[in-house]
Amino acid sequence: MEINKQDALFEFVLRIADDSLILGHRISEWCGHGPILEEDIALTNIALDFVGQATNFYDYAAKVEGKCRTADDLAFLRFEREYKNVLLVEQPNGHFGDTIARQFFFDVFRKLFFEELAKSTDEELAGIAEKSLLETKYHLRHSSEWMIRLGDGTEESHAKIQESVDTLWRYTGELFFSNEVDALLLNEKIGVDIAALKRPWEKQVREILGEATIEIPAHAWQQAGGRTGVHSEHLGYLLTELQYMQRAYPGMEW
């Protein structure tokens, strides 16, 4: 498929923005439900960072698209198939260990990704990446510490987090999805060589999981689809809640 630079850039930015929004929304569901007060506050703070980052990327995506859509239009008024986030971030919160494992896999990826994106020749993208990277380091530390605490904790916490890892592992391969969009932008020195992030990602994940006495699943099966708009059932329910106000009261503002 032939794709021009503007369309490729719009798609590329949208993927980053959708990952941020959907995961931010997921984590925000913990508000008022955290296992302890400090953790409730930690998760809502992280959710806020993600939604803030999403806003910056949507603003830019809207500008790149140039069709008079706003960041809010992109966030609230698209259909399920138009969202390009990876399947991992839309998976339900489950128990606390499920949320932490999902977060950990994503944070390791995000840090590596933003480190590269901060070198982009596209100054706006590099700027948002540079800003977001500082926050991502905090998130990664938080999720890594919890992986170790839960994995190397009690028999029960170990069994639960091992199960979370076993369940979510199949969604981690999609983090490294790339197609002609990425190839074109990489050529222009705007994008990121996403496939090249896989090795350092695995290395860092192995280090922490080793420390946490968690085993990497033996099964190799990987499920993908989100980047091309083919989502798991969970996204529809999430969007119903996320978009409710704008669908019920179009154009409403706080």
Partner: peptide, 13 residues
Amino acid sequence: MISQFGSTACKAH
């Protein structure tokens, strides 16, 4: 440190 995250994004507890 009680928590890396506090009452606002910029503070720890």
